[in-house]
């Protein structure tokens, strides 16, 4: 068995890459979906909850008040496109493609290549109604900002080394 498999501090997940959050404040690969929250271009108080399922690319987009996005009827809307683009910035194209089970087009994969590869399969709208769950994960994520730092010992962090490897 390799050293990696017998290492207590094997690196499993590379850190996120920095990106600007103004347009898409939240992106994650979780629950079998690429999902996140996209700020509305017109109303500062409104956000869209968007998702694409791994494997089927079934997509959904609605406001946080559960109004369906007008652009996401037959195909990916601009919010979903922005979500894919920002996920590629944050996680790198390979990790996004692997999670969504996209067969990478030849050459250097990029966000538009991933979007095209998914669109070619003519994905259907997602009936899973995950918007509420995704939005609550976003709120949970925001709550991290409000958690107080501590100076008590946290020996468990010895299991979480930094890595120079990029996503």
């Amino acid at each position: 068995m390799s050293n990696w498999e017998r290492s207590s501090t094997a690196r499993v997940v590379p850190p996120a890459r920095p990106r600007k959050l103004a347009k898409v404040p939240f992106v994650e690969l979780a629950d079998g979906r690429l999902q996140g929250v996209v700020s509305s271009g017109s109303d500062i108080g409104r956000v869209y909850v968007s998702s694409v399922a791994a494997g089927s690319y079934a997509f959904a987009c609605s406001t946080n008040n559960n109004r369906p996005c007008g652009g996401a009827r037959g195909s990916f809307c601009n919010h979903i496109a922005a979500l894919v683009d920002q996920a590629v910035l944050q996680y790198g194209p390979e990790r996004v493609a692997r999670y969504l089970k996209i067969d990478l087009p030849d050459g250097e994969p990029d966000a538009s290549g991933l979007r095209q590869a998914m669109a070619l399969t003519r994905p259907a709208p997602d009936d899973a109604k995950a918007a509420a769950a995704v939005f609550s994960r976003f709120l949970r994520h925001l709550a991290y900002l409000e958690l107080a730092p501590v100076t008590t010992p946290l020996p468990e962090m010895q299991f979480f080394p930094p890595t120079r490897a990029a996503a």
């Binding site: 850190p15 925001l142 991290y144 730092p149």
Partner: peptide, 10 residues
């Protein structure tokens, strides 16, 4: 002496 904080992944 250490200080630790939860953080957003970004």
């Amino acid at each position: 002496a250490g200080v630790s904080a939860p953080k957003p992944d970004t």
